[in-house]
Nucleic acid binder design. Structure first.
Lengths: 233, 233
DNA sequence: GTGACTTAAAAGTCATACTTATTGCGGTCG
DNA sequence: CGACCGCAATAAGTATGACTTTTAAGTCAC
């Protein structure tokens, strides 16, 4: 996903970010810029830029004569896609997946309702196509293909809502869906009920039935929550 | 709110950030680090740190031999509290308030439902106190006092939900409520119906009635949306 | 024990020299 | 005339050293 970052400060962040969100430096820990720059074998300027980025994510706070202090979890910018990725890669992935799924279950039904009003003809077509793709990949251990269509489906709904805040959650939902798929027993086909629901949502949006789109999407997200409760009670 | 920032790079951001989100440098514009550092009379290192922060917010992208390019709006980290503040201070404040209010109307009812399950005794007490405070300040042009209790009420609900993603929206909601109050005709008292609803939500949470808390909160947010539609149709 | 003074540690700032990637130009060859 | 290749100009990236500022913490006198 991130791949070998081009810039030094980004490469430092690839290590330091996950280390902080992963609890390797618990809140209250003090880091020293000079020490870190030696440890990572980069210049102070590079390390300072990395610290600035961490600071803008409210992961750390830099104070004179003290150092760089790791902030308590409540301060973190947990909506920052980078922070989300770091945390999903870490130890408290299950906890993270749960809170994100709860967020989904609040947002996506509302987004679907709005999408029924605002979706363009192209978006309606895209939804139908995604749903068809999901049906086509719903049997025979073709989870990767299924996942791609699933992600695109939800992304399209969020975008078609016409609300910028909803649209920006597309990446988050993609991470959640990918995380779920990749940590499930891989020979298990997706729930047929969920597939049907997606097809019906596409239908409801196309027919401008907001209430139905919202209700059907709610059932999808409730299903996702139930699944989590079964896997990690 | 921000007040004279201690660090130079932060002072640069206080000007440059709003300039970008405000459309003064439209997407595609190219900035040069050297020029900027002269313009702001800071060293290149300071300007580079500022650019790194903007980059981490996905407002700009830095490329060798080209410069610092302003990214299209869809790329921006619109959940970053700083970005939200910058945009609320700018020209498209109404548009921004609307999309945030829609987000509220999706999230807050769900949060209230969860709060009914998870709120501690202290949080229940705080909610009741806030509601009482709102009632007490609901007449006679005491909007500032009303606002403070209103903000605290919603912050408490979001926190009491027990979901970290919801909790982190407390600041956003605070900004929205403040923005709404400060741009309304100031001699108008708050809607009595809204006040009553808050009292009832506090009651429902205390009595662990999730469905009622959710429904009542939904009415509050629908009211907020209606209000927006009246003021800016 | 309290308060004022001193000190030292760490981040912040600045200037400069140097490296590296990339774009765009210009020239050559097909 | 167009396509391709290589060169040079440019702007960001990196490294380093000198200096400033803030502030925690220790010390000394009262």
């Amino acid at each position: 996903m991130t791949g070998q970052a081009r810039w030094l400060h980004a490469r430092v962040l690839d290590t330091l970010g996950p280390a902080i969100t992963g609890g390797q430096y618990p809140p209250g820990s003090v880091l020293l810029t000079d020490e870190l720059s030696q440890e990572f074998e980069v210049s102070r300027s590079v390390m300072r830029e990395a610290v600035r980025v961490l600071e803008s994510m409210h992961l750390v706070e830099s104070r004179r004569r003290v150092g760089v202090t790791v902030l308590p979890t409540e301060e973190w910018n947990v909506y920052d896609p980078q922070v989300i990725r770091w945390r999903l890669a870490g130890a408290d992935r299950p906890r993270q997946l749960r809170s994100l799924t709860v967020l989904r279950s609040a947002v996506e039904p509302a987004a679907a309702g709005l999408a029924a009003h605002h979706a363009t003809a192209e978006q309606c077509a895209a939804l139908t196509e995604c749903a068809i793709g999901m049906v086509a990949h719903s049997r025979g251990q073709r989870l990767e293909g299924y996942l791609l269509h699933d992600i695109e489906f939800h992304r399209t709904i969020l975008k078609a809502s016409g609300n910028e805040m909803f649209a920006r959650l597309g990446d988050v939902v993609a991470e959640v869906l990918a995380g779920r798929t990749h940590h499930r027993v891989m020979f298990e086909d997706p729930d047929p009920a969920a597939v049907t629901l997606h097809v019906k949502v596409a239908e409801a949006v196309r027919e401008r039935d907001a209430a139905r789109a919202e209700e059907l999407t709610r059932r999808i997200t409730i299903g996702a929550l139930d699944e989590l409760n079964v896997l990690a009670p």
